[in-house]
Simulated assay, not measured.
Amino acid sequence: MARAVQDLQDATDLIDELAARRLGVNRTDLRCLSRLTARGSLTASELASAAGLTGGATTTAIDRLERAGLAERVRDTADRRRVLVHLTERGRGAVQEIWGPIADDAQAELLRFGVTELELIETFLRHALRNQARHAARLRGETEGS
């Protein structure tokens, strides 16, 4: 099982590397792109938190994503004091081109499982995610109470 998880992580890492290369961005920018795809428009501070970056690193990543035409800053129509970062049409298209077929294939694979099996897989993934988050905090030097 551990080998299968490691192989999946390595395959995901390779896809991310190839995607970043294709888009002309770095891996940090790609992480921001991923968070915008998953969560929709975010303020810079929300994006920083979601991506696990400092404010300065996030500003730099947003600048690069804007130069690449993948994201843009837009004033919030509900609160003009807020500025949101969101994917451009080009950004949404790039995400669909790269990850759309992967998501479609994964969906087809998941249809092979029953509800009980899917619940078990989801439970495993949630535990694995908590484990990864805990060790990311450890590697950042954070303690349990931080």
Rank of each mutant, 00 (worst) to 15 (best):
G56D: 06
R27T: 06
D10G: 03
T43F: 08
R27H: 06
T58G: 00
T43V: 08
C32K: 00
V74N: 02
S45Q: 06
N26K: 04
L18W: 10
T59K: 13
A71H: 05
D16A: 12
T88Q: 05
R67K: 14
A51D: 06
D79P: 03
T54L: 11
Q6M: 12
I98T: 04
T37I: 11
D79F: 05
S41Y: 03
L53A: 03
A57I: 05
A38G: 14
L14D: 10
W99A: 15
G52A: 05
I102T: 11
L70F: 00
A68G: 01
E17W: 08
L70G: 00
L8R: 11
A48D: 08
D7K: 12
I15K: 08
L8G: 12
D7L: 12
N26M: 05
L36P: 04
L30Y: 08
L23N: 02
V83Q: 09
Q6Y: 09
R81E: 11
A48E: 06
A68R: 01
G69N: 02
T28E: 03
E89D: 14
L14V: 15
L87T: 04
R21K: 13
I15C: 10
G24K: 07
A94M: 14
N26P: 06
L30P: 06
G91S: 01
G55T: 12
L47I: 11
L65A: 00
A68V: 00
A38Q: 14
A19L: 07
R82K: 14
D29G: 03
T43N: 10
D7N: 14
S41A: 13
T54A: 09
A103C: 08
L14N: 10
I98D: 03
D29W: 02
A51F: 05
A11K: 13
V85K: 02
I98F: 04
L14Y: 07
R35K: 15
A57F: 07
V85W: 06
V25F: 08
D10L: 05
D13P: 02
L47V: 09
L8V: 12
G55H: 12
A50S: 05
Q6F: 10
L53T: 02
G24Q: 04
A71Q: 01
G24A: 08
E46K: 13
G93Q: 14
T88W: 05
G100E: 10
A11C: 11
E89F: 11
N26E: 06
A44S: 15
L70C: 00
R90K: 15
R21T: 15
C32N: 01
L53W: 03
A50R: 03
R35W: 07
E89A: 15
R92S: 08
L87R: 13
D76W: 06
A38Y: 12
E46N: 10
S34K: 08
V74L: 03
L70E: 00
D104V: 15
T59A: 13
R90Y: 09
A20M: 04
G56R: 09
D29Y: 01
G100K: 11
T58D: 02
G40V: 04
R27F: 03
L8H: 13
L36Y: 02
A44I: 14
L18E: 14
R81G: 06
E66T: 01
R67P: 02
R39H: 15
A57Q: 09
E46I: 11
I62H: 01
G100Q: 10
D7S: 13
A20L: 04
S34I: 10
R21P: 09
A51S: 14
T58H: 02
E72R: 09
E72M: 13
L47D: 07
R81Y: 04
G93N: 15
L18R: 15
A38M: 14
A38L: 14
L30W: 09
